[in-house]
Every structure is written in C-alpha cells, then in structure tokens.
Simulated assay, not measured.
Amino acid sequence: MGDVEKVICTKKAKELIAELKRKHGHLMFHQSGGCCDGSSPMCYLMDEFLIGNEDVLLGYIEDCPFYIGKAQYEYWKHTQLIIDVVDGRGGMFSLEGPEGVRFLTRSRIFTEEERKQL
C-alpha cells in the first residue's frame, strides 16, 4: 500500500479546481470550523488566507495546499477528508460561490492498517 493521504478529492472537485485555477491562478484550501460557513472547505487565492501556527497542512489536492485548524484536526485526525462538489451556494468568501456550486467535505475513517502507516 502506498502513502496514506489525509485529504483527497472527487472527479467533480478536480474539474472545479481546474476551472477555478484557470480563472484565478494558484489556489489554497482551508477547512473551516467557523460559525459563519459551518464546516465547509473554503477555497482562496494562494496566500489570500493567513495561515497561522494553529493550522495543520493536511496535504494537497490538485497541487493546492489544504489546511485545517488544529482544534478541528483533533476531531477529524482519524478520518480521510474527501472533498466533493454539490449544487448550491457555499461559503460567501470561497471562490466557487459564483459558480452555483460549493465544495463539501465528506469523510471516512481510516482502516487500522492506514492508521499504522500514519
């Protein structure tokens, strides 16, 4: 088994990320845990969102860094985040908002073997 990825994305998410990259340039993601946008994955222009000491780099989706707040990570560290796209309006600060779709985080619990690799 290869390296275990903590964050991956669906084909629909890959397509949307490619479109957003064409329109806006290099992107980054942050898994929100805030009150305003629930727990939506937020998409920003690279360096538009200030990453702090309390943020954890989970990995990359389509060459875009994906961060999560440390407190949120503690709740989800036993799961793989799967970034998907669904119809509807997402977070008001996230770049996909005008597209009529939003990123959505799904998850699955790591297997025992995957946990050992982590």
Rank of each mutant, 00 (worst) to 15 (best):
K21W: 09
K14L: 10
G34F: 07
K21H: 03
E62S: 11
F49Y: 11
L57T: 12
K12E: 05
V56I: 15
V4Y: 09
Y60V: 05
G88W: 07
V86C: 00
K23H: 02
L57Q: 12
T10V: 06
T79S: 10
R89C: 10
K70V: 15
Y75F: 10
F49G: 00
K70E: 14
C9N: 00
S39K: 08
T79P: 02
E96Y: 01
I68L: 07
N53T: 15
S94A: 11
T79F: 12
R108T: 08
Q117N: 15
E54P: 06
L50M: 13
P41I: 03
F66S: 04
K11C: 12
F103K: 05
G34L: 14
F93Y: 10
M28L: 11
M42H: 02
M1K: 09
L50H: 14
R115E: 12
S39A: 13
R89Q: 13
E96I: 04
G52M: 09
G33K: 05
D55P: 06
R108K: 15
I61M: 01
R102G: 03
K116D: 14
F110C: 04
F110Q: 01
F66P: 05
A71Y: 15
L58T: 04
Y75C: 11
F93Q: 09
F110M: 08
E74R: 12
G33P: 03
K11E: 13
G91H: 02
D87E: 14
H24K: 08
E54T: 08
C9F: 02
L27E: 01
Q117W: 11
F49I: 04
E15N: 13
G100Q: 11
A18C: 13
M28P: 03
G90N: 01
G69C: 08
H24I: 01
M28F: 07
G59P: 03
K6L: 10
I8D: 10
D37W: 08
Y73F: 14
M28Q: 13
C43K: 04
K70R: 15
E99R: 08
G2Y: 12
K12S: 10
M28K: 05
G69F: 08
V7W: 05
K77H: 13
R102W: 04
D3K: 11
